[in-house]
Amino acid sequence: MNIFRLLGDISHLLAIIILLRKIWMSRSCAGISGKSQLLFGLVYTTRYLDLITSYISLYNSVMKVVFLAASYATIYLMYVKFKATYDHNHDTFRIEFLVVPAVALALLINHDFQVVEILWTFSIYLESVAILPQLFMVSKTGEAESITSHYLFALGVYRGLYLLNWIYRFWAEDHYDLIAIVAGVVQTVLYCDFFYLYITKVLRGKKLQLPA
């Protein structure tokens, strides 16, 4: 474990908690993409299967349970409890265009053609694009509540910190995983224009308004 990965995990946890709390407190999921949340649920489910089989550390197991539980809770709140507030009209990204290529790529490019490894690889590829429906929705609505932008910022920073973690691990432990790194770079790059807007607008107290 290193400080970059720890801060990354904390940022990731913070993002998930911010979102869950926002939906629960406002009893509404307006402005949130349910499709992205479904994709994140799929990412954690396919990646954390080893929760049952392999034990790495208490921290690792606890965080996996928390991520899975929070992800499913968010999906439940969005599609069941506060279903009436779900914004179907703006959450229109075709997620099959993300899932199918991720499956194909996981079958083509992986470290080992085993079920668990393929599922892990699929989850890595899918996670790198899972935020697209949310970013697409923000661009369609033209704005995002500040709490939603804090969620997106924390979520974007988490994988950016993981990039630093991988640099550190390459330097300190002399190993690296190119699949995770390439997908992590793609994932972080997707947030760049949002980071720009967040830093130039939201941090100055303005609402996140995308140029129409």
Binding site: I56, K64, F67, D112, W120, D177, A180
Partner: peptide, 10 residues
Amino acid sequence: ILNSFQKDEL
């Protein structure tokens, strides 16, 4: 082949 280090990351 790049060693896919043991999945100790979240």
